[in-house]
Every structure is written in structure tokens, then in C-alpha cells.
Amino acid sequence: MGPRYAPVSADIPLLSNLSVFQNIALIRQYHQRLTAEDSHRDTTALLERFDMCHLAAKRSFELNDRDLFFVKLLRASQHANAAIVIDRPFAQVENMHNLSPIRKALELLDFSGIEGIILGYEWNRGRYEADGQ
């Protein structure tokens, strides 16, 4: 089996007939065969950690681009043993000036041991290397 990737991309949307909660829960429910109860518990904890519980019942079209990006990131984080591939983050979130929100998010995810790949354009190098915010 080849390397597994968990994409966070504008071309890989959330499922429109599922809520944010269901989109995130789906990955582990499918791959780890979690029951609805287990999945509910884990996903609720995750959303609480990101302070995103208010988004749980929303559908993708109700989200702004920033929320949408982080929901996608949370979804990608649920794919066990897969490298998170973030595709042009600055293109996905307009008002993001550097990578620190992503870094924070990855820290909150307790993201360790698995590769994270960020794909972007050369002309955005400054934003990738900038700190702060």
C-alpha cells in the first residue's frame, strides 16, 4: 500500500449533505469502524478543543472560508497514518497572512510523527516564513 495522504484543498470539498460534525466524524467511522457513540464522543471533544462546537450542525455552504479551511483540516487529521497535505492555504483563506494559525491548529491536534506537507507558490514564500499573528 502506497503513502496515504489527507488533503486539505479547495478541490476536495466537504460533503454538502453532511454537517460539519458528520464530515469530520465520517473518516474514523469508516476507517476505524467506530460506532456512532464513540465517534460522537471523539468528534465533540475535537470540536471543543478548537472551540468550533457552534459550527457542528452547519453545512459547508454556511461556513466562511476560514472556518471551512479548519474544518477540512480537522477532517484531514482524522485520517490515521496519513500525511496531511495542505494545498495552497493562502488561496483557501483570504485573510490569513502567515502559517501561525495552521501551526497552532497542528499543535492542538497533537500532531506528531506524521508528515505534514504544505504546497504553495514561490511568490508566497514570505508569508510561509513569517511568524507572529
Partner: peptide
């Protein structure tokens, strides 16, 4: 219609990207 819209929205690609078998899911 649901399937066709999912296809047009690339949601089926999203499932494939997360290694979810659309036949099973």
C-alpha cells in the same frame, strides 16, 4: 440527482481522496 450533484461538486473525489470506497459508503 444526489449522486450527479456529488460528482459535479467533486464530493466523490473527496471520498476517494480519503480512501473511502463509494460502493461501500
Amino acid at each position: 440527482a444526489e449522486m450527479a450533484v456529488m460528482k459535479a461538486n467533486r464530493e466523490l473525489d473527496a471520498l476517494a481522496a480519503f480512501d473511502i470506497d463509494i460502493a461501500q459508503y
